[in-house]
């Protein structure tokens, strides 16, 4: 039984429809990837799942129950975390305050402290920067903070939007190592990436999004071997 199911979802901003009926699903504990070019609708897809962008039609099911049309904070509280494109950390707050906001819904202060400590284990550099204002972190550290903030919210499903964007190659590898390790913690991952090679290597299954439609789907290995994917996304 999929933990998250997206059925024929259409969504967009105002008069512009960016998604023209997208379907995919994720099993509990699975890591799936959505790959595609810039402007293919990947970010809109995640935003529509989280309730930031309203769905025009279609449905999003979480544990078989529809969450379509719910407010974003309600969807988050049900267990769907979202680390948005462009990090969107609270740049004028400290690292500590950012992480505390990640656990905004956690009422138990001790549990929150443990969750923050756990997130800092994944990204040890954050632990040394707790009192620093987040906007002064390096790009890589900001991205780590964004992922850590989402993790402090204890998501069951984590939507990760371009966690490797704009990072130095070494940091990219570190980031993908962490992302790959999250499923072992029981977190289901929907990974949106332009870095198709790394994403397909991690993903059990993947979907290719083009102009708001799914054009290819398969296991990560199948897609990585597909000549069309190789030509368009792997630069071969």
């Amino acid at each position: 039984m999929p933990i998250l199911e997206v059925n024929d979802l259409q969504a967009g901003y105002g008069p512009i429809t960016a998604l023209h009926g997208v379907s995919f699903d994720v099993e509990e504990g699975e890591l799936v990837a959505i790959i595609g070019a810039n402007g293919a609708g990947k970010t809109t897809l995640l935003m529509a799942i989280s309730g930031i962008v309203p769905a025009l039609s279609g449905a999003v099911l979480y544990r078989r129950r529809s969450i379509t049309g719910l407010a974003a904070h309600v969807i988050m509280r049900q267990g769907i975390g979202h680390c948005p494109e462009g990090r969107r950390i609270f740049s004028r707050l400290t690292v500590q305050e950012n992480l505390e906001l990640g656990g905004f819904t956690q009422r138990d202060r001790w549990q929150l402290r443990r969750d923050i400590a756990e997130a800092c284990e994944l990204f040890p550099v954050l632990g040394t920067r707790m009192t620093q204002v987040a906007g002064t972190l390096s790009g890589g550290e900001q991205q780590m903070l964004a992922v850590a903030r989402a993790l402090v919210g204890r998501p069951k499903v984590l939507l990760l939007d371009e966690p490797s964007l704009g990072l130095a190659p070494l940091v990219v590898r570190q980031m993908f190592d962490v992302v790959g390790s999250l499923t072992a913690r029981g977190i289901t991952i929907v990974l949106v990436e332009q870095n198709a090679r790394a994403a397909l290597a991690l993903a059990a299954r993947a979907w290719v999004l083009e102009a708001g439609r799914v054009t290819l789907a398969g296991t990560g290995k199948e897609l990585a071997a597909d000549p069309r994917v190789r030509a368009a996304y792997l630069g071969e």
């Binding site: 930031i52 904070h73 988050m76 975390g81 969107r88 609270f90 305050e97 505390e100 989402a150």
Partner: peptide
């Protein structure tokens, strides 16, 4: 207060951490 500061900086990010904006 924390929620207010979060919303003031980025409404979307605040909603994504569970703040009822």
């Amino acid at each position: 207060g924390k929620a207010m500061r979060a919303v003031s900086q980025d409404e979307t990010a605040a909603a994504l951490v569970g703040v009822d904006v």
